[in-house]
Nucleic acid binder design. Structure first.
Lengths: 254, 254
DNA sequence: CCTACTTCGCGTATCACATACGCTAATTCG
DNA sequence: CGAATTAGCGTATGTGATACGCGAAGTAGG
């Protein structure tokens, strides 16, 4: 059925691969690969390709080639590309345990560490925030991380539901900015034009637009209105968000 | 070169299509279609398919079929799928002018109206937040919206750069939550399992995990920890963010 | 009205992918 | 060693995007 880009993932099968300890049967030809090796190769391949081409550049063939095996051999270990993506998600999280220190830190540091962890994850694995995570968050590694953060935040005395929403909100924020950034970076690679070059190339079109009088505010903006990096944007927004959490906590705990 | 999923978009050509008023040459066979009709058909098709299948279900063939023409006819009007996606982005924005009222509203209402606009856009066009917008924000319609918001916020007396970052942060936040939500909705459609069904199906695996002692906090969470909808999450996070903006404005303007 | 010219519609071909099927190879057990 | 079992993977199928080029449908001029 072709199933395309890894959509149509079967949660059941993914789960089984994620949690089950697979023992190899005593009979028959021994496997030349392991699931872990395949996942590792997939991650490595995606890391290389996604920065320039996007996730859709990750093909089963590319993974197989990297491993020196035939494409179809992969299907002995993984039901399909979608499940492989699920495995990649959980795998990659394991490498980024946040530095929550000795447990003495305040909520702000805990959340900042978590945000930083996710941000670095996205930067190092530029395909990560583009993969559907809707039902992939159940691997042992992701559960571990969630468990830790909630444990640390719970001391605040705020209800669990609020805490969970806070973690969710922050996560979606981080991924949102990361995606914008990565899209931008990718566009630079692809077109060979830096952001500056790009705007310069648009200059004629934009000049005309500005002179048209249809965009009075845009035409009057400060010189430095666009002088920021995505890292700065990320930090800025994260601080605002945390300030907002602070107000919320104050209200709730006095 | 196959170029796949609409990546590799050529900014030059997209721009030209976005801004240029195309006049039809006096000679030769008259076109049976218009660019606008194609974009409209593409949007309609995507709207139908993306809720269930995702953006990648939008194929040139599907668009052509809807229009009753051959697939290759589309390429007389559009250089490629990528450029068509750019056109779709700008097109769809035009329908969602935010209700900024009479210009008497405060910044909070202005930003909330903008967030609401983006949110509805994503809900109505479930492919929207999944399309790379890195360099597509230059259509006349998007420029218009940005111009308006900045115009309204500018009265705060905060520097333009901060305003731009605030708009950017909020936008990435909205898109981040929208994506999570849409991924979740899609997973429900695809698997036929509601979120509840899904977790129920995981119950055995999760039980075991919880009993393992590796996830002490998760095991002790309140019953209602997950009792929220994405709409609620969206509002919640937006309010926190705005509270954070408020602190920032206070600091800056006294 | 006919002809040369221009632009359009789109069939056909090519190439990339995911993946089903089934054959052959490699091992272990008896 | 032969039967049983499992792995590796070539080949075929179906779907996408899109290059190429031909024949059709109009127009300007005579």
């Amino acid at each position: 059925m072709t199933t395309a880009n890894g959509d149509h993932r079967d949660p059941e099968r993914s789960l089984k691969l994620l949690w089950d300890d697979r023992a190899r049967p005593p009979r028959g030809r021994p496997p030349a690969l392991t699931l872990d090796a395949i996942v590792a190769a997939a991650v490595a391949t995606a890391d290389e390709l996604a920065g320039t081409e996007g996730v859709e550049a990750l093909t089963m063939r590319a993974i197989a080639t990297r491993l020196g095996v035939g494409t179809m051999s992969l299907y002995r270990y993984v039901p399909g590309k979608g499940e492989l993506l699920d495995l990649m998600l959980d795998r990659v999280i394991a490498d980024y345990e946040p530095d929550h220190g000795d447990g003495e830190r305040g909520w702000r540091e805990v959340l900042a560490a978590e945000a930083d962890r996710q941000w670095r994850l996205c930067m190092d694995h530029p395909w990560y925030p583009f993969v559907d995570q809707s039902r992939a968050m159940l691997g042992p590694n992701s559960l571990q991380g969630l468990d830790r953060i909630l444990g640390l935040l719970r001391r605040l005395g705020v209800d669990d539901r609020s805490l969970m929403m806070i973690v969710g909100v922050q996560s979606d924020y981080v991924m949102g900015v990361a995606r914008s950034y990565l899209n931008e970076r990718r566009a630079v690679e692809r077109t060979g034009l830096s952001a500056e070059d790009f705007w310069a190339a648009q200059a004629p079109t934009l000049e005309k637009a500005m002179l048209s009088g249809r965009f009075p505010t845009m035409a009057a903006l400060d010189e430095n209105t666009f002088d920021w990096s995505y890292e700065q944007l990320f930090e800025f927004g994260l601080n605002r968000l945390h300030d907002g959490f602070a107000s919320y906590f104050e209200e709730r705990t006095g």
